[in-house]
């Protein structure tokens, strides 16, 4: 008997249970439902799309392997995101040389970017800018600014000091801001000219 799933016709709990039972069809449904978003996360952490795809596949293997242990104590998406981030961190630690700069206290509380500018920024362009950050900056920036980790958690996760984490974030933000302002301005102008 073949069970056909419609994306809207199955509860998350049932989907997880089926996946844990190695139901390939359910796994595909889960993959199609959450895959693009999770690959987007990998994209932010990896230095290029190829690495992002590699991290994404490794992460999904872990997700399928561990789904049987998922107890719905947190949201499924949150749980999967966490696995994907851990996979990305492990991948980068293994495959990239991360250069941590000294703990120079940096304070970049404010930014020259306006809210409107950031809101109007092309999403993919913004993510590409984050991806182009040096690996150390990229990791801390993603974890602190987007994932919401504290500097203490980042320090523990990456085996660095809290000060280094703060410093990495401040520098990353500064570099990103400059990029966004410079390239984004040019891009917008270029786009304006084309129109």
């Amino acid at each position: 008997m073949v069970i056909k799933y419609r994306k809207s016709g199955i509860t998350e709990q049932e989907l997880v249970h089926r996946c844990a039972q190695e139901d390939a069809l359910a796994q595909k449904v889960l993959f199609e439902k959450y895959g693009p978003g999770l690959q987007g996360i990998c994209f932010r952490y990896a230095k290029n799309l190829s690495d992002a795809e590699e991290i994404f596949q490794l992460g999904f293997i872990k997700i399928f392997d561990k789904l049987g242990n998922f107890r719905f104590e947190s949201g499924l998406k949150t749980w999967m995101t966490r696995i994907m981030i851990n996979t990305a961190l492990n991948y980068l630690k293994t495959n990239e040389k991360i250069k941590w700069e000294s703990d120079i206290e940096s304070q970049f509380e404010n930014t020259d970017l306006s809210t409107e500018q950031l809101h109007g920024m092309d999403l993919k362009f913004l993510m590409e800018c984050i991806q182009k950050l040096p690996v150390g900056y990229r990791l801390v920036f993603n974890m602190y600014a987007i994932e919401g980790y504290s500097h203490k958690e980042i320090a523990e996760e990456l085996n660095i000091t809290e000060g280094t984490s703060r410093s990495q974030y401040a520098r990353a933000k500064n570099v990103l801001e400059k990029k966004l302002l410079a390239i984004g301005f040019e891009k917008n102008n270029y786009a304006g000219r084309r129109i």
Binding site: G37, I41, C42, R44, L49, E53, F56, L126
Partner: peptide, 10 residues
Amino acid sequence: KAESFEIPVR
């Protein structure tokens, strides 16, 4: 912005 960011899967 990051929440809505997706990369199509091969």
